[in-house]
Write a protein that binds this DNA or RNA. Sequence first.
DNA 1: AAGTGTCA
DNA 2: CATC
Length: 216
Amino acid sequence: MQHDLFSTNGGSEPISLGAQSGLLRGFALPLQDQLLDAIQDIALEAPWRQLFTPGGKPMSVRTTNCGTWGWHSDRQGYRYVAHDPHTGKPWPQLPELLQQLARRAASQLGFSDFEADACLLNCYEPGAQMGLHQDRDEQSFAAPIVSVSLGLPAQFLWGGTQRNERPARIELLHGDVVVWGGVDRLRFHGVAKLAAGKHPQLGAQRINLTLRHAGN
DNA sequence: AAGTGTCA
DNA sequence: CATC
């Protein structure tokens, strides 16, 4: 039987996080097995690695990328690079599965024709976190950000356009997708220190996929 | 600078 | 708030 990969949550409404942002609870669940396979393949080609902030401090997550552009951080700063500094090779191709998932999710929030050219993969183990920040290394902020959560639950910190606004805490579960763009595109966000736990598929980790249009 | 440590 |  022919079935719609997105049917599980195709009819559910986004949980609003702002005028042009929302949480699509469980949106990626129908694709979970294919997503985990794709992540494994990506990590074989572009291994997980620990990045350093420009200040020289190690980040607590492990990172890799796929797509035309990969986000990288070191003492030179934050930037997108076309080649993996670890291997010298181009980043693995962005799987069509992921491209379509991101396009469908963006469409649910009113962003048509989203075309990701970068996917940052962050792996959190218990204790790992991501401080409040803006995604502002992309060449244009016209396209939204699409974030896919897999594995252990996390508290998403969802702030305002100004750093001093106290962020809301939103629990993100395996299969959840968050989309933000337009007036919400530069909102500060982060992830609270991951609590210990074991996920049936992923064990003691959370993997987040962040899809972006980084180039021209 | 998406970091941590420190001070109020 | 300091930090190649």
